[in-house]
Design a protein around this nucleic acid. Structure first.
Lengths: 129, 129, 129, 129
DNA sequence: GTGGTCTAGACCACG
DNA sequence: GTGGTCTAGACCACA
């Protein structure tokens, strides 16, 4: 299911967050779907429960999932309207990455191809039911 | 010259690296141009000299600048051909960011506009002499 | 009748307690009025019967309702004189909340308006028969 | 400095958050002032460092403080404009508490007195330098 | 069973 | 020295 790099500079709980976000964005995890429990993921990934917990908590804070004590953790119902802060942040990240890509010699066509690819992967995920 | 955000979670030395990389990519810092000395930057930004040195060391390791002991630090001569590893890495970063942007509701047109903006900022930097 | 927020961090039994307390305070539930049975509420709200029972048990412990085994649960007869402990507790909660509201920029007028609103809602409830 | 109730139902880290928020709102902790380090508070309160850490992290998330790895934790520069969400939330909390207070027999005058008291305590804190 | 809190103690990167 | 991450393992409240 997941592959985590314990030697990476990026904290494990952040790697986990990224993976789960990805699966939600690609539609592999559907709205209201139940996530694996903290304990099961913990044993499955041989990672401490606290670390999983931390990832889940942060994902809840960011609105991707919600947790019900005693029941489990679930994917949030829908993509809520993105905050203005989120949009501004994304613009900045895109601008920075574009600048870096241009510097590395990426052309407009390269970027368009990558965009198409991203779109296709997202659609593939959604038709995956 | 620089503005560092002490409140950011990002380490100061990384912020410094990003700023300098940006200035190189935008052509504000020209190839072979001399960078400010560790001492002067340290007092100017009221940042620990060790922190400046770490940023310079890392930038040298990544090939953006080179240091001549006793003379100073300089911007690397020319944009060397990007490594294949660099290109593969950039493709992945672009794909991930595109996916996230799409999830946040960014359209193809939004991305194109941002790309044009990035191009313009880069050109503006180069004409800045 | 009720709407429970499964996404809230607040335990369901507490949400239930709050709703019932509110209805008593607003006079929507009259003294001596019979509450719905545990079973019916359970099916109506699709909530575990144990959870309903816990809410009722706690409400009885706090004096808002009383239960007659075999007959059902009823709203307590009259607003008994509030304990001194209850009053002291309420003063503290008000002081803290006022401090926070002031910090958030709420003015005396804002608070007065909200007070009037609370009064009106309470009167509306009582005239609701 | 602090007094924590380990037997309380409210988690220790939340109690800590409330205390620190209070001290910031009352001006006892000034903007940009350094907070005690995680470790020092930990030994001082005989509470595990992780618990202090959690409180600090949440406070940072809510904008009350900010932390610089390697330097320390500091009170945020100023009261930033409250979010609309914060204001809506506060209105609801005030309405609910007013309803409860009215139910307990608190009069308009009682509430006004408590408001004046809250104002005074806040001013006292700010003149405390 | 679930998520949530907490302790004890270790290690790391940063300044 | 600082904050941040992580493990090992315990206990609690909730459904």
């Amino acid at each position: 299911m997941f592959e985590l790099d314990v030697r990476s500079r990026k904290p494990i709980y952040e790697q986990l967050m990224d993976k789960i976000k990805e699966m939600i964005m690609y539609g592999i995890l559907k709205p209201e779907e139940q996530l694996p429990s903290v304990r099961s993921l913990s044993t499955q990934l041989t990672v401490n429960p606290n670390t999983i917990q931390k990832a889940y908590r942060e994902l809840e804070r960011e609105g991707y999932i919600y947790s019900q004590p005693g029941k489990g953790s679930f994917v949030s119902p829908e993509q809520q309207q993105p905050t203005q802060a989120q949009q501004v942040d994304m613009r900045e990240r895109l601008l920075k990455l574009f600048a870096e890509a241009i510097y590395l010699g990426f052309t407009k066509e390269d970027l368009q191809k990558l965009y198409e690819q991203a779109i296709q992967e997202q659609e593939r995920g959604h038709h995956h039911d």
